[in-house]
Amino acid sequence: MSVIPREEWDKYPDIEITLNVNGKDYKVKVKPYERLLDVLRYKLGFTGVKEGCGRGECGACVVLMDGKLVPSCLVLAVRANGSKVLTVEGLAPEGKLHAIQKALLDTYAVQCGFCFPGVILAIKALLDRNPNPTDEEIKDALSGQLCRCGSYLRFIKAVKLAAQYIREGKEYFDESGARG
């Protein structure tokens, strides 16, 4: 059974929290047991955040919370109160692609794409702290991102390419130019 018996739920009313998601402020009422994942997906509509396991094992749900990579399935929404959250939707402005996204396209890495939002943010977290990672560092940074379609080798290539783009000062690309 749940930790809090149902009869006692009224003692734990919804709590209003503030979140800054992708640069915009939101006020949202959440239940004490609600996960950040569900608030982002269902209350705020950021379905770029995916749920693959709900246990911190697959990496599909990771977001950057105050610059740190966290599995949003293991973060209570109340715990995120007042924090700045970045999801894949906020990585690049409208009509633009971030260098990481461009590099993943250039390496033709996309298959089902379910793992991509998490993979992209994990790469972002890596490149933010290490602009020129080695193969081993890339593997370590992505070791929590499962991709069953098996695009892993392309992820490694894409991280290097993205790092190069960023070093060359090309952080954003036009979305339209990237289409097939």
Binding site: T47, G48, V49, K50, T87, V88, E89, A92, L97, Q101, L104, L105, Y108, V110, G113, F114, F116, P117, I120, E175, A178, R179, G180
Partner: peptide
């Protein structure tokens, strides 16, 4: 080698599952 039709939408996190 031609980029698949939904690659950009998937990479932007816009595609709905």
């Amino acid at each position: 080698r031609i980029q698949r039709w939904d690659a950009v939408e998937k990479i932007k996190g816009r595609v709905l599952f």
